[in-house]
Each structure stands twice: as structure tokens, then as C-alpha cells.
Design a protein around this nucleic acid. Structure first.
Length: 492
RNA sequence: CGGGAUGUAGCGUAGCCCGGUUAUCGCGCCUGGUUUGGGACCAGGAGGUCGCAAGUUCGAAUCUUGCCAUCCCGACCA
């Protein structure tokens, strides 16, 4: 493995790719557009997943699992949704292979085994789920139905990037059914808030909560709420979405319920999801030219202890102290590793754990033990301090909290410094080219204007922020009147 | 899907233009030893369908064609 990571300033996307692979989060696979998530990356995902799952359950949701395959007839039932995803669907047409008569040892698709109806590999599960809900919902007493599933989905993207856009990705998708429009909207907003809380508090990535413009809306939704994050290169990243689906799917799949007055009504729906893409957001929000910077709360490893031996006789003494410290930290619920592996020297380990973004590194050698201290190095600031062994566990626990907060504050400052108001189109173009980030500007609310701005600048409307300040102005492009600013950015 | 580039050991590479013994070097790996406070050193060793498949040729990493994959730039997108 080469030791050098591409520098962010030299080539940001190469830095990102390099980092994902060298830090062992994931790797390209033999399958086009699909990645292998390696143990370190999967441990990170598990921590994220576990916390989100807890938050979903605290808000009343339960988990279930629906099929990977969606019969084409079900898939096409909700037309807007189907059309929106049609261009990126993997489709199963056969169910059997057979030996190739003309090519020994090879297989061909058995033409006899053609499916009567093609199966779409789910790009999202609304269709199969709403078809199922039809059988589950009869009365208002069956509502609300609050279900989440952890799954993989496939979207056949033209161009893929590790974590940010892979042909197959892991995610969760919540699908809820409600008796009233108000309740469904409330659910949609509740879940975008859950996402924002998770991403900010656990991943330490500040987000802007907002609503998508009509053209950026989820196919089949009445309204799409989202959280938008800003990456270090000034590009925005959609980190999660929550959709108010109205009665579109209820009508498409004929899901009705009897209300208290025995009147048949269509059900109101929401769906919401976040994916392994969040890992991309995490990487690009915090990491530096030395490697990953993991927020302690979801870091697979929070503390690594590295013993530094001098001569064989020092090993048992150091190991004893090291193991004691590890036990104390484990008792406090801290994820810790004592790396006494023999195949690398301390300097190599230092660099390696920096690359992997472990928040705290503790070095333990005879020199320290003689003074009853250890050397504590934090990944976020790269500061090293000599700390007394007395009360070290409490010290490290507090330090983890401090690092979590510091990473968030740093990202928040950067984000806030990169939301810039523009009052003319020229100003906006200049800002996009020279500074990047979010451009806060007036927009006339039409799709035509949005499209023209996109064509000329590659920037899209990321969102109309919730609790947006109302302000009279004129559209930056058309000069027509506008009541509020929206956020534009170039995005991933 | 369009334009450009690349593919040689786990990783990074030389050789290819101009076909010809046993495919170069570094890192990593294995064995033994010395080491260990910022990516150690010495000695010995293992590891290759030269992306895949056809073709040209006495002979192909090298020439031709097709395919596959990756990267960069577009279009598409969470």
C-alpha cells in the first residue's frame, strides 16, 4: 500500500477515492458500480444503523422486510413513481441457466426459462409495500401503520462513486400510512427532524432542513423534505429525504379504510430514507489530508492504545498497564483497542490510525510509566498531551465528547461561512466559481427559471429552508417578484 | 450513453513505439535476527493466465479486432 494520500487541494475526488480505499472502508468489486463494504466500513454503518434504528423505534416505528423483486405490473401502478425510476432499473427476465452446448464449461441463459412477467429489482419499495398494505388496512383502527425496513436497493446509475452513488446500496426506508393528511404531513416533518438530529448529533455534520422544489421532488411525492449538508469542496450533498406522498399510492393500489363514520377513505402516506451515502457525507465533511476524522459517537474504534516497548523486559510491565486501561475504558462503554501487534512499529501504527480516523490515540511506554503518565493524541486537532494515569478513563471519556463537539463546531463554522447571499445572477455565477457553497438567492418559483439556472451554472435548488425568513425581493434570473430566498448549490 | 486515458505479483511501476533466452524495480508478504517515542534495518525466500477472448506470426506483454473493468470530463441520479 502506498503511504501517500492524494491531497485535497490537488484533486478532491481522487483524495476521496484514495481515502475510502486506503482507510479500508470499502473497495471496488468485480461487479460494475457495486462496492464491497469492508469490515471497518461496515462497523461504521452498523453504528449508524443501530442508532437510527433506536430513534425510529422511539418514534413508534417497527421493522419488517419486503421482497427484493417487484413484479412489473405492480411497479408501474403508480405512474409518476414508475416513470421516475424506469431508466435505472435492473430487471430479471429469466430464472435458470444451462450448460452452453457450444462452449464447454460455460453457461447460457435458458431461453425456456423466461418469466411470464419480468421482475424489477427494487430501486425503492413503495410499490410492493403499498400492494401489501392493501391487505393490512381496513379500518381507521389499523392506522397509523408505521413500518421501516433495512434493505438493499438497486439503481442502475451511469456513473458511480464509492458510497456516494453505487448501483446497489444499503439503506432504510420508512413507509407509513395515516388516516388524515395532517397526520401524514406531521410524520413527514417528524422524520426529517429525526434525520437532522441523527446527522448533527451523531455524525457531527450540520444540515439544513428544507423542502425540495417541484423538479427535485421524489417521483410520486406531493412534497419532499430533505436535509442538505455541505462538503469541504463547496458542493452540497443531499443526506436524507422524507416524502409526503399524499394519496397517490393509496389510489394506485386501492388502499382504503373505513373511518369512524363508516365512510371509505383513501389512506395518506409517507416514505423516508437514508442510505450508505451518509458515509460519503461523513468522510467529505470532516476528513483531512492525513485521513479520516471519525466523530467519536459513531466511530468503530474510539480509542487506540499503542504500547512502546524498549527491550523485552518492558513488555510485561507495559502490557499490564495497557490491559488495565483497556478494561477500565471498556467498562465505561468506550470502544477501545490495545494494539500490541508485532508486525508494525509505533510510528507506522500512528500513521495508520490517523488514516482510519480513530479519535484518540494513547501511547504507552516505559518513559511514561516511570512518571505515571501517558501520551494522548487527538485526531481532530492532532494535539498531543501528557496526561496522568490517575483518572485517565474519565479524562478520555470527556475528551471524546469534546472532540465530537469540536468536529461539529468546525463543520458548522465552515458551513455557515459558505452560505452567501447573491442579489444578481452575475454575483451568483462568480460565487459559484470562486467560492462554492450555498448561494442564498431569490427565485420566482417557476420550473423554467430553475432549469435555465441549472443549464447555465450547474447549480440546482437544494432546498427552500424550513422556517425560512420571508423577504420581498426579485428573482435573481427573471427579475420577477419573490417572497423568500432559496438555497442554490452545485451538488453531488 | 458520448469524449479522453489506463489495465503487467496484494499495491505502485519498467519494458510495448521498433515482436525473439529466465518480464524490471520499489513497497508489502514469508523465515531468521537486531529493533520499537512519527510510516525500522540486515540476510535469505515465495509470489505472474502481462485485464479477458479471438486473430496475425516460426514466435505476442509488445501488432490487429472484439469484449470487460477502472479513472477523468459531460448527460442521468440519493
Amino acid at each position: 500500500m502506498s503511504k501517500e494520500l492524494t491531497k485535497r487541494a490537488d484533486n478532491y475526488s481522487e483524495w476521496y477515492n484514495d481515502l475510502v480505499v486506503k482507510s479500508q472502508l470499502a473497495d471496488h468489486s468485480a461487479v460494475r458500480g457495486c462496492m464491497v463494504i469492508k469490515p471497518y466500513g461496515y462497523a461504521l454503518w452498523e453504528n449508524m444503523r443501530d442508532q437510527l434504528d433506536k430513534m425510529f423505534k422511539e418514534t413508534g416505528h417497527v421493522n419488517a422486510y419486503f421482497p427484493l423483486f417487484v413484479p412489473k405490473s405492480l411497479f408501474e401502478a403508480e405512474e409518476t413513481n414508475a416513470e421516475g425510476f424506469a431508466k435505472e432499473c435492473a430487471v430479471v427476465t429469466h430464472y435458470r441457466l444451462k450448460a452452453d452446448p457450444n462452449n464447454k464449461g460455460k453457461l447460457i441463459v435458458d431461453p425456456e426459462a423466461k418469466l411470464d412477467e419480468e421482475l424489477v429489482v427494487r430501486p425503492t419499495s413503495e410499490a410492493i409495500i403499498w400492494n401489501t398494505y392493501k391487505g393490512w388496512i381496513q379500518s381507521y383502527r389499523d392506522l397509523p401503520l408505521l413500518i421501516n425496513q433495512w434493505a438493499n436497493v438497486v439503481r442502475w446509475e451511469m456513473r458511480t462513486r464509492l458510497f456516494l452513488r453505487t448501483a446497489e446500496f444499503l439503506w432504510q426506508e420508512g413507509h407509513t400510512a395515516h388516516a388524515t393528511k395532517e397526520e401524514a404531513i406531521e410524520e413527514t416533518v417528524k422524520m426529517v427532524n429525526v434525520y437532522a438530529d441523527f446527522v448533527e448529533e451523531y455524525m457531527a455534520v450540520p444540515v439544513i432542513k428544507g423542502v425540495k422544489s417541484a423538479s427535485e421532488r421524489f417521483a410520486g411525492a406531493e412534497d419532499t423534505y430533505c436535509i442538505e449538508a455541505l462538503m469541504q469542496d463547496g458542493k452540497a450533498l443531499q443526506a436524507g429525504t422524507s416524502h409526503f406522498l399524499g394519496q397517490n399510492f393509496a389510489k394506485a393500489f386501492d388502499v382504503k379504510f373505513s373511518d369512524k363514520n363508516n365512510k371509505l377513505e383513501y389512506v395518506w402516506a409517507t416514505s423516508w430514507g437514508v442510505s450508505t451515502r451518509l458515509i460519503g457525507a461523513l468522510i467529505m465533511a470532516h476528513s483531512d489530508d492525513q485521513g479520516l476524522v471519525m466523530p467519536p459517537r459513531i466511530a468503530p474504534l474510539q480509542v487506540v492504545i499503542i504500547p512502546i516497548y524498549k527491550g523485552d523486559e518492558s513488555k510485561p510491565v507495559i502490557d499490564e498497564k495497557g490491559h488495565a486501561m483497556m478494561s477500565a475504558l471498556k467498562t465505561m462503554g468506550i470502544r477501545v483497542k490495545y494494539d500490541d501487534s508485532d508486525n508494525a512499529r509505533p510510528g507506522w501504527k500512528f500513521a495508520e490510525y490517523e488514516l482510519k480516523g480513530v479519535p484518540i490515540r494513547v501511547a504507552l511506554g516505559m518513559r511514561d510509566l516511570e512518571n505515571n503518565v501517558v501520551e494522548v493524541a487527538r485526531r481532530d486537532t492532532k494535539e498531543k498531551q501528557t496526561i496522568s494515569l490517575n483518572g485517565i478513563a474519565d479524562y478520555l471519556k470527556n475528551l471524546l465528547n469534546e472532540i465530537q463537539q469540536n468536529i461539529y463546531d468546525r463543520a458548522l463554522t465552515f458551513r455557515n461561512e459558505n452560505i452567501t447571499e447573491a442579489d444578481t445572477f452575475d454575483e451568483m455565477v462568480k460565487l459559484l466559481d470562486e467560492k462554492g457553497g450555498f448561494i442564498s438567492a431569490h427565485w420566482d418559483g417557476t420550473e423554467e427559471t430553475e432549469e435555465k439556472i441549472k443549464e447555465q451554472t450547474k447549480a440546482t435548488i437544494r432546498c427552500i429552508p424550513l422556517d425560512n425568513r420571508q423577504e420581498e425581493g426579485v428573482c435573481i434570473f427573471s427579475g420577477k417578484p419573490s417572497k423568500e430566498r432559496v438555497l442554490f448549490a452545485r451538488a453531488y
